[in-house]
Simulated assay, not measured.
Amino acid sequence: MENEDDYYYYNGNETFEAHENPYRVHQIVLEFFLLVLIIVGNVAVLIVIISEGKRSRMNFYIKNLAVADLLCGVFYVIPRIVFHFNNGFFGGNILCKIQEYLKNFGIYGSNTIMVAVSIDRLFLLLAPMGSLVARGKRPLVVCTLCWLLAAVISISGPIVFSYDGEVCTLNLSRDEITIYFTIIFVGVFVIPTLIIMGCYFTIAFIIWKVSHSSKGRQESNVLNPPQHSSLSNNSQTDSDFGSTITKAKMKTIKMTFVIAIAFVVCWSPYMIVNILNVYGYMMTTNEFFGIFIGSLLPLNSVVNPLIYAAFSVRVCRQFRSKLRRKLSASRSSRRTENVCL
């Protein structure tokens, strides 16, 4: 790699100049399509949750995740569309820094909330009574901290990016770019992935252990019915813990697990290709490959609403029936008004 233009920069701009991109129109169409899906999907999630009127900690987290995905779509995808539509960036240095801050804010907000949801699901199993007591306050405090952390970390964008007269790009040397992206790779991808996977592996182990011990105790009780009150109490405790897992709503655990898997699947290619590229282990000038890799990050914001819809069929049906009733009532009132006139 002879110059800095060989890097797939983290800001999402490809390694080639805009006027040299033979896939410019295709990329604009693709990213506009992704933008529409992000906005429609996440706005729909917010409307469904708000109209449901159910105040639960999971709904609160999903609403914050939907807002983060919306920010990612607006501040990550739209600047890319404008960049390729105009064959460059003409906003000046101030707008460049504002753009990078807002872009990072949406991405980091989504990541931190994803980690918070995973920890919350684990906490729900380890301390179910504590989670019930803190149901009203904890999600608000956690999400506030997530957004504050994202706001602070996002300051790195305006610091390292600047306008060079043609594009908004990293104002760093080759070695500094390597250090910068290594920090991004570890802090934004590796650490969140390890925390998320660690939480769900622990959740899976707890569920397996409880179900295994409950099954073994049932078989033991059939052969040797408990005679002492202490044994009965232990059995009752395990039964209560097993019912707690049921009350923790396995469906939400499965849903957040699938969301976490989608995060890893969408982010892994982009981050791995970039870290290999900056260390010189993978050099490519294929424009189509750059388009594909750069489009994977917003794809995560497209997939999350689809996962929510797949795991919330009943809620979506109720929303559709409620919407039909409102439309029917509106038509009926209009007909009545026309008859009166």
Rank of each mutant, 00 (worst) to 15 (best):
M271K: 01
P225I: 06
I155V: 14
F161L: 10
E52W: 07
G165S: 03
I307Y: 05
K215N: 14
L46Q: 03
L276T: 01
M58E: 08
A151V: 07
E14N: 13
K251W: 14
V36K: 06
V25P: 01
P22A: 04
T237C: 09
R334I: 08
Q236G: 10
L95P: 03
D175H: 14
V186L: 14
I184N: 04
C143R: 11
I47Q: 06
Y8G: 03
S301D: 02
M58F: 11
G216R: 12
T336N: 09
V186F: 14
N64S: 10
E14W: 12
L46C: 00
R314I: 08
Y10A: 08
T285F: 11
L145V: 09
R325D: 13
N221D: 13
E100V: 09
H84N: 07
F319M: 00
D120V: 04
N286I: 06
F181D: 12
V303S: 00
R174E: 07
A150M: 03
I191A: 13
P22V: 07
V264L: 11
P298G: 02
L276E: 00
T285N: 13
F89E: 02
S295K: 07
L140K: 12
M271A: 05
R317E: 08
I39Y: 05
L148S: 12
G290P: 03
K209A: 07
I196L: 03
S56Q: 08
Y8E: 04
G136S: 15
R324W: 09
A329W: 09
L194H: 10
A310D: 07
E20N: 10
L145R: 04
F292W: 13
Q236A: 15
L132C: 11
K54Q: 07
C96P: 02
G198T: 03
S230D: 08
L122H: 09
T112H: 10
L172E: 00
V302E: 01
